[in-house]
Design a protein around this nucleic acid. Structure first.
Length: 854
RNA sequence: GCGGGUGUGGCGGAAUGGUAGACGCAGGGGUCUCAAACACCCCCGCCGCAAGGCGUGCCGGUUCGAGUCCGGCCACCCGCACCA
């Protein structure tokens, strides 16, 4: 018997696909198009199992669609700008560009043996000047369309290294290299006006029916539409120009519960006081300590500073509230000022308790008496409560009703106005770093900020500095200290000027790559004919970690590109269907050193719970996301070398549902390999099967075959890859045990190979070839189940008595309920379970179940 | 802290509100073999001799019927705007 050699067979079919150019996407063909895209990878240099899983899922879809008569676009590229390249240059010399392109070459070489049905002729990297030059063209068009502007925003500032830090470079509030306490500092930065689209980005979520509901919900919460009241408090003895403070509240119904005013340390009033009073400056400096993340701000100890100023309550000018500067109030949201209602907001409650402020109760639970609070009372907004300090609406009403009544009342009094606000902030795209797309503008003393001319694009990153290698070991942005790149002539007046040295957020790069794939070599960002043909992405696949930012930014970009004429109107929602896949996890193996510190070990160093080298037992920590630091990684390259690509592909698809995490186990990989070998053996043994058989045997195998075609097809179309694979296991077992005739078995085996082809394409080609299939299975039409074989004549009904299963009967599929009832009541086990009790109800769910209720 | 998700045998998991545990792994028994490997066959949630009882993170609810729906908790995972 021929042994199955993955190494030989996989290489053979990969070159056959190449030769036939079966995966080259071509828009001229007379077929419906299908665009399947997996989120493109960051070129770290090594592919990992998560990539294998992600691209295998996309490949199953792509290959399936190819065999159902679609013109498939399945491209691959590289999300190639970003910090790791600069970090590598900092750590071990070299240049981010060389590091990145070498990594791309390495990863491409690791990916190709997987046998993915990718059109590699469309490949690009976002760090190619041909790509980011077009991105600069988009930026200029957005600028002209009023979609980009500059304003101040806070960054993480390392006061020792004198540099801006990314959030991940801030560890416990300290700079990762200097260890200095980080502070929040304002910088002038470029912004995309995504907030202009907040309402549309929110309402359009309803149309994204093929997105996971959780992603739509997360985006909806992120955009955060709220209805509230904006109104001023008059300040008593205020500094000039600050006689009023605008506040925004979503709970105007609690106005009579106000106990203090709070303003952000970045509020203009705080800044004014900071300049005048050292103690305010000292507090604000304290309040600005720590990173910029919302998480850091929320978790920090809530601190307040009593400015001594007083604000008059709008309903009663003699009621004065203290004005605090508080570190938890964000300047970016609302007006940067709030009024505190400690009785009905836990954060305000904590603050009031800490600073000994009053806690006036506005409402109590219906039927309850007013009593001193030990925590804030925050019932759901749709719950009716009893307003004891009420000024608008009924005494008993829901929070939502009270809010509307309060807004109407205040508008009537001319105190403020009802407004709709969004939590979504504009997208700051400036990065003070080298390895990113340069922002194509020039700063001129005479003309101000001047856009570059399109004919000067791309504004390319300098590789060296006047012949000298760029020094990445100095903190800060090398572009900023690169005179021959930075200093230029103003495109408007020709006078000496300076280039913008900020580069773009890498999220910009990934916000339109899907559109670029439709015309990857064009000298404009897109070509409308191509975009019109290929867009939208029919199926997008990636990690849930991108549920909010990447997808929201891409949705914004699609809108902005439509406005500037780079995408057709139908592409404003660029991803028709989205699938978010789970991670690949693995157990962690650990021993401890002499100081009891953990030492991690790679899976290949461990055998039978002990270190291969020393025999020392390892602690096994339950599965977690594969990470280099914990060494719980398996290298796809060695997996493919040891088992073959088909085995790796089969494994990552089996067992776990695609949206959930999958745990890599060596035994699971071996089981996958064993199964594929078994399928191959069954195929090679067909020649010795008897030529004739009982008609019933043939029918049984054909019935199983058609059922399997049906179930696998449904499984693939609904992302139930694990279920499809379970059906293929069952069908393989059926084929192995079948006593059907040789010709029927050959037919069944050929179908088995075809059904496996999206998952294990190489083995499938080999089976197809051996069993006399024409051409490539990759381009052979997908089999169709014959409905005649799917019909079952009888059905087995479980019988419950009072909800507990007691018996079952097998009856013809279309037996009338009355007859079923009679049979049920005649059943011995039913009578025993009833034990003489009278039957109150008999529920027959046709084809499903019978429940006898006594 | 806030937003979102997940939780089922020894393990990965299956199950339109309708027989909980499909399929696979591990384990046990057997056939083949001088022996092993491979392969093939059978068993396999827990308690119990059995009848039967108990079982889908925990507590409660809706329903003829709940892994599935609702409320409250617990644990873990993802995101929180400069990681990609």
């Amino acid at each position: 018997m021929q042994r199955y050699s993955a190494a030989q067979i996989e290489a053979k079919w990969q070159s056959a696909w190449d030769k036939a150019q079966v995966f080259k996407a071509d828009r001229s063909a007379d077929k419906p198009k299908y665009y399947v895209l997996e989120m493109f990878p960051y070129p770290s240099g090594r592919i990992h199992m998560g990539h294998v899983r992600n691209y295998t899922m996309g490949d199953v879809i792509a290959r399936y669609k190819l065999s159902t008569g679609h013109n498939v676009l399945h491209p691959m590229g590289w999300d190639a700008f970003g910090m790791p390249a600069e970090n590598a240059a900092m750590a071990s010399g070299g240049h981010p560009k060389d590091w990145t392109y070498q990594n791309i070459a390495d990863m491409r070489a690791q990916m190709k043996p997987l046998g993915l049905s990718i059109d590699w002729t469309r490949e690009f990297a976002t760090c190619d000047p041909e790509y980011y030059g077009q991105q600069q063209a988009l930026f200029l068009d957005f600028l002209k369309a009023g979609l980009v502007y500059r304003k101040n925003a806070v960054v993480n500032w390392d006061p020792v290294d004198m540099t801006v830090l990314a959030n991940e470079q801030v560890i416990d509030g300290k700079g990762w290299r200097s260890g200095a306490e980080v502070e929040r500092r304002e910088l002038t930065q470029w912004f995309f006006k995504i907030s202009d689209f907040a309402g549309d980005l929110l309402s359009a979520l309803d149309g994204l029916e093929d997105w996971p509901a959780k992603v739509r919900l997360m985006q909806s919460n992120w955009i955060g539409r709220s209805r509230g009241l904006q109104f001023p408090f008059a300040l008593v003895d205020a500094p000039e120009g600050f006689d009023q403070i605008e506040v925004y509240t979503t709970r105007p119904d609690t106005l009579l519960g106000a106990s203090f005013l709070g303003i952000s340390p970045d509020h203009p009033l705080a800044k004014r006081l900071e300049g005048e009073r050292p103690e305010v400056a000292a507090f604000c400096a304290t309040a600005r300590r720590g990173g910029t993340t919302e998480e850091a701000i929320e978790k920090a100890e809530k601190l307040g500073f009593d400015t001594g100023l007083r604000a008059a309550h709008p309903f009663d000018p003699t009621w004065e509230l203290p004005v605090y500067i508080a570190n938890f109030i964000l300047m970016d949201y609302g007006t940067g000022a709030i009024f505190g209602v400690p009785a009905h907001d836990q954060r305000d409650f904590d603050f009031a308790t800490k600073y000994d402020l009053s806690i006036p109760v506005v409402f109590v639970a219906d039927g309850a008496e007013e009593a001193p609070l030990t925590e804030a009372y925050v019932p759901p907004k749709d719950q009716t409560v009893h307003y004891i300090r009420n000024f608008a609406g009924a005494e008993h009403q829901t929070g939502a009703e009270a809010v509307e009544a309060a807004i109407a009342h205040c508008e009537g009094l001319g105190i403020g106005k009802g407004v709709t606000k969004f939590r979504l902030r504009d997208w700051g795209l400036s990065r003070q770093r080298y390895w990113g797309c340069p922002i194509p503008v020039v700063h001129c003393d005479a003309c101000g900020v001047v856009p570059e001319r399109k004919e000067n694009l791309p504004i390319a990153l300098p590789y060296d500095e006047d012949g000298q290698p760029i020094d990445f070991s100095i903190p800060g942005n090398p572009l900023d200290r690169h005179p021959s790149w930075r200093d230029c002539a103003c495109p408007a007046c020709g006078a000496p000027a300076r280039r913008e040295t900020d580069t773009m957020d890498t999220f910009v790069d990934s916000s339109w790559y899907f559109a670029r794939f439709t015309a990857p070599r064009a000298t404009t960002p897109t070509v409308l004919e191509d975009a019109d043909y290929w867009m939208n992405v029919d199926q997008y696949i990636g990690g849930i970690e991108h549920a909010i930012l990447h997808l929201l930014y891409s949705r914004f970009f699609a809108r902005a590109m439509q406005i500037t004429g780079h995408l057709p109107a139908k592409a404003v929602e660029p991803f028709d269907a989205l699938f978010t896949q789970g991670m690949v996890t693995h157990e962690i193996y650990m021993t401890r050193d002499a100081q009891d510190r953990p030492v991690y070990h790679f899976p290949e160093e461990v055998e039978n719970g002990a270190l291969r080298a020393t025999g020392e037992m390892v602690e096994v920590i339950p599965s977690a996301k594969m990470s280099k630091s914990k060494k719980n990684v398996v290298d796809p390259v060695s997996i493919v070398e040891n088992y073959g690509a088909d085995t790796a592909r089969w494994f990552v698809l089996s067992d776990s549902p695609p949206e959930r995490d999958v745990e890599w186990t060596a035994s699971g990989a071996e089981a996958a390999e064993k199964h594929l070998a078994r399928v191959w053996r069954l195929v090679t043994e067909l020649d010795s099967a008897p030529e004739d058989a009982q008609p019933a045997e043939d029918a049984a195998l054909l019935r199983a075959m058609h059922r399997t075609i049906h179930e696998v097809t449904v499984g693939i179309e609904s992302f139930g890859f694990n279920a499809a694979i379970a059906r293929l296991y069952a069908f393989t077992n059926a084929l192995g045990k079948s006593a059907a005739s040789r010709s029927v078995k050959r037919q069944a085996a050929r179908i088995l190979g075809q059904l496996m082809s999206p998952m294990t394409p190489h083995l499938a080609e080999e089976i197809w070839h051996r069993l006399g299939g024409e051409g490539l299975v990759a381009t052979t039409p997908w089999p169709k189940a014959d409905p005649v074989w799917l019909v079952e004549e009888t059905v087995t009904l479980p019988i419950q008595v009072n909800g507990k299963r007691r018996s079952e009967i097998t009856v013809p599929k279309d037996m009338v309920p009355a007859e079923i009832e009679a049979r049920v009541m005649a059943d011995e086990a039913v009578q025993r379970a009833l034990d003489g009790a009278a039957v109150r109800k008999l529920i027959v769910v046709p084809g499903r179940i019978v429940n006898v209720v006594a």
